[in-house]
Design a protein around this nucleic acid. Structure first.
Lengths: 192, 192
DNA sequence: TCATCCACTTGCCATAGGACAAGAAATTAC
DNA sequence: GTAATTTCTTGTCCTATGGCAAGTGGATGA
């Protein structure tokens, strides 16, 4: 447990023993392919550190189209930040794309540690700013890069996703249709 | 000063006196149109609460195109979260689009308050999760909405920006060219 | 007062990606 | 093992937006 969660909770201000305390506040949870970690409308009361498997977050737009907002893989955290910390209903669904092993921590336990361990507090801020940065990068990429460039970037940065997620989910994540993504793939194969 | 900063620092866990302590840690700063609050490559050492005026954040993409990443108006905060909290060089420029009045707080003062006032810590987390939420909404909008819908949304949510920012900056923020935005505007006028 | 510079508009044509529909191929269900 | 369902590919045609270039009007500056 320690070895796996350590990757996620890596932070210079966290001592070995604090890290252990934090890890011990987690409980193992497994999800089968298709299970929901959190559904739209539910108020989150914990978050999930993904140790194995792949999770997809998505919303429905006004036309009822399913839009993938993110993929959460090994050593990443599946969480609706707003739902959990503001205790309001989630706007996203979080669903296991494959069988998953996770460690969960609930809000109450989190809060206690967050306020008693300064390094954990710092870790939280660092984690959130990293999320903001990633999301900003993605937005910029949506503006400046072509669909095929966005695909190649995903391929390079998160190859696991391309292996395990169906094409249509990857397509909506990239902001294109599955038809277009299929054609882009075909082109890329040719190029090689 | 209190009245204006109170809007930004609104939080249920902050008492009147704590709020006052926080406000007193800020110093007034003014910027003239065109001034930089922070330049790419600099390490941020403070953030700016905008009281009056409009700030634009932007980056250059690999082709040298100027991409507007955000607008920061009245009662919003101009900050490069990653640069300030990780103390690394900023990747964005922050420039005053109009003359601006701000209150600034530096990192050291912020840290002291952040760790000594629990409500301020909570405020910080709430503020960041709100940012994440807004940014996620924007990304979804980039995927599901047409350029003209994105423009109308901006018009509705941040009319100030349309008044004060030149068309080309709004265009790159929306992910289109200034030419296209000009045509979209023309269409919208017709519709009315 | 004239020259220069922006900000914006407009025209013409090019192109990336979407809509829809028809298969193939793979997976799941019974 | 066969039917049903889902996943992915492909064809045809269409539309939103981009690229480039010319032109207008207002602002700024010597």
């Amino acid at each position: 447990m320690m070895q796996t969660l350590q990757v996620i909770y890596q932070h210079p201000l966290l001592t070995e023993s604090e890290l252990e305390t934090i890890c011990q506040a987690h409980v193992p949870v497994v999800f089968s392919k298709g299970d929901y970690l959190l559904k739209k409308g539910q108020v989150a009361n914990s978050y999930f550190c993904v140790i194995e498997g792949l999770v997809r977050s998505y919303v429905y737009d006004f036309n009822g189209n399913d839009i993938t907002t993110g993929f959460i893989g090994k050593n990443e955290i599946a969480i609706d930040v707003v739902s959990l910390f503001h205790q309001i209903p989630s706007v996203e669904h979080f669903q296991a794309l494959t069988d998953c092993k996770c460690y969960a921590i609930n809000l109450d336990n989190f809060q206690v540690l967050y306020h008693s361990i300064k390094g954990f507090n710092e870790w939280g801020r660092a984690w959130m700013s990293e999320c903001l940065f990633q999301l900003k990068q993605r937005t910029i990429s949506m503006i400046t890069d072509s669909a095929s460039e966005r695909y190649k970037r995903l391929q390079y940065q998160h190859p696991q996703i391309l292996q395990e997620a169906p094409l249509k989910f990857i397509a909506s994540y990239l902001g294109i249709t599955d038809t277009s993504l299929s054609r882009i793939r075909k082109e890329l194969v040719k190029e090689v």
